[in-house]
């Protein structure tokens, strides 16, 4: 147990007991990003998967919408400590997008419009754990929250769910992304409180 601060009582709720360590509940939806919000035109939007052999598969906005859509309802955990429960998204499972991609890669570097990157193991994108989403609560995803489309990997801290996603590089060796180079954890499991490098 940490050092007790006299007079601090805090606020407890049953819901908060269900949260990962160090998180608190919020009902609004804060935003964290390192620069201006990119404005991405749907007419030129693409999502590209590049394998370790530099083979590319590209989807346009129409292509994405033509794929089977799922509606995951998930909890979000941001490394800045807020959690938001029960958000519902619309998008395409990475299982669908990667189904016909031939690869022996174990790692992924995610790219975004605006230059943001983040890395994670490929297996964390598969088996129903990740989506490219374009709707939040039934409405088009606002640009401040990553629209037109973002990655959603809700079992990791939210910085892994790259906003304004533009593609994935499948890699045989792990390569740190933007926040991962700046001292944040390489994996980012909220339940093990992997916030910063070495946690």
């Amino acid at each position: 147990m940490g050092i007790v601060t006299p007079g601090f009582r805090g606020r407890r709720s049953e819901e908060a007991a269900e949260l990962p360590p160090g998180q608190y509940l919020t009902s609004d939806f804060p935003v964290l990003s390192a620069g201006p919000t990119p404005q991405v035109d749907l007419d030129t939007w693409t999502f590209t998967v590049t394998t370790e052999g530099y083979e590319q598969t590209t989807w346009t906005w129409e292509d994405l919408l033509a794929l089977p859509q799922e509606h995951p309802t998930v909890d979000l955990h941001c490394v800045t400590r807020w959690s938001k429960l029960g958000t519902t998204w619309t998008g395409v499972s990475l299982d669908v997008l990667l189904e016909d991609v031939e690869t022996a890669a174990d790692f992924v570097l995610v790219h975004s419009y605006g230059g943001y990157t983040t890395n994670l193991p490929l297996e964390d994108l598969l088996d129903g754990q990740a989506w490219i989403v374009h709707e939040l609560e039934g409405d088009p995803l606002p640009s401040a929250h990553g629209g037109p489309a973002r990655l959603l990997v809700p079992h990791l801290y939210l910085w892994k769910s790259a906003k304004w996603v533009s593609g994935l590089d499948l890699l045989t060796e792990d390569e740190p992304g933007f926040w991962e180079q700046l001292g944040y954890h390489e994996y980012g499991d909220p339940w093990r409180e992997q916030r910063y490098s070495g946690d």
């Binding site: 919020t26 609004d28 939806f29 804060p30 935003v31 964290l32 990003s33 390192a34 620069g35 201006p36 990119p38 807020w82 605006g114 230059g115």
Partner: peptide
Amino acid sequence: DAAIRTERFGG
């Protein structure tokens, strides 16, 4: 874009 660094806070 690259000349602008941002820090945001929610409630």
